[in-house]
């Protein structure tokens, strides 16, 4: 497949465990995201997505294990917090004065293209413009890893498209690595090439999306024939069953088989929290 044999990880966690309010929000999480990848972080509410992101950017200290970022990490938190009384220009000034590396010219140019007025107060911008300003502030730090918590939530379709165009342009332009969470998988299908699935504080899936899709099959056939088949998860009504299975096997004419799409793959794993598709101890090396 398209994945190279070995890629340099920009984000790497080993045995990461984080406790929040006495309960484990994240347990025994070992994953890596290679350079230049756009990684989708998905999972139900409370799965530990935000916790993983906060740990990645250093806002939460691990209680167990390690988390490391090669280079600098920038973060856009959920709801894209900005100082609402600051004008956009003042927010850029804030960034310039609180950072050692700062691409103010690039940030101004980007906002100019997007039509965000520098003199307007952040609190009076539209949701899409606020998202663009928050992302511009993060990108102006010229990070190696950009972490975005639900960047598309509460945005209209046009704003979602614009945000993604900005991000993808940056990935193509200078090999930025992105980790972004969402619970709308349709938003991620064309933009992400790496998948991380968290469920109940545990890591379920981590890997290249093309490899994962090529490594699974969606079977559909008679329920009684499903007995004894090793499946990631199975759904069905009465005599008919649909199974998500790993690998590539021929099962005879009673089964219709096809490749799952990203949504089906993710749902298949989320349905059975004990199943996992993780790379071996060698990390991203395959």
């Amino acid at each position: 497949m398209s994945a190279p044999i070995l890629e340099v990880p920009v984000l790497e966690t080993t045995g990461l465990g984080v406790r929040r309010r006495r309960a484990w929000a994240l347990r025994d999480c070992s994953l890596s995201v290679p350079a230049g990848r756009v990684a989708a972080l998905v999972g139900p509410n409370g799965a530990g997505k935000t916790t993983l992101m906060l740990a990645a950017v250093g806002l939460l200290a691990p209680d167990r294990g390690h988390v490391s970022v090669r280079g600098t990490a920038a973060f856009v938190a959920q709801d894209k917090p900005l100082y609402e009384s600051f004008t956009v220009g003042e927010l850029l000034e804030f960034g310039r004065r609180t950072n050692t590396r700062w691409d103010g010219e690039g940030a101004r140019a980007r906002l100019d293209v997007l039509g965000v007025p520098l003199g307007r107060r952040a609190g009076r911008l539209s949701g899409g413009q606020q998202a663009q300003v928050a992302i511009t502030l993060a990108l102006a730090r010229t990070p190696d890893l950009l972490v975005l918590d639900e960047p598309l939530a509460n945005l209209d379709p046009l704003a979602r498209h614009d945000v993604m165009r900005t991000l993808m342009g940056e990935v193509a332009g200078r090999g930025l690595t992105v980790l972004l969470s969402s619970h709308v998988i349709a938003d991620l299908e064309d933009t992400c090439d790496w998948l991380v699935v968290l469920n109940g504080g545990r890591l379920q899936v981590s890997g290249d999306i093309d490899d994962l899709l090529a490594g699974h099959l969606l079977l559909s056939g008679p329920a009684e024939a499903a007995e004894g088949l090793e499946a990631v998860s199975a759904t069905g009504t009465g005599r008919h069953a649909t199974l998500l299975v790993r690998g590539d096997r021929a099962l005879g004419p009673r089964w219709s088989t096809r490749r799952p799409n990203l949504d089906e793959l993710v749902m298949g794993y989320l349905r059975s929290p004990q199943a996992a598709a993780l790379p071996g101890p060698a990390g991203v090396a395959r």
């Binding site: 398209s2 230049g36 756009v38 498209h161 614009d162 993604m164 165009r165 900005t166 993808m168 342009g169 990935v171 193509a172 332009g173 064309d190 933009t191 992400c192 090439d193």
Partner: peptide, 19 residues
């Protein structure tokens, strides 16, 4: 068009263009 030009228009992953 370069990968960057394509992804800035279509909002797709650059690796898709390269592929």
């Amino acid at each position: 068009p370069t990968a960057r030009e394509v992804v800035e228009k279509l909002a797709i992953n650059p690796n898709t263009v390269l592929k």
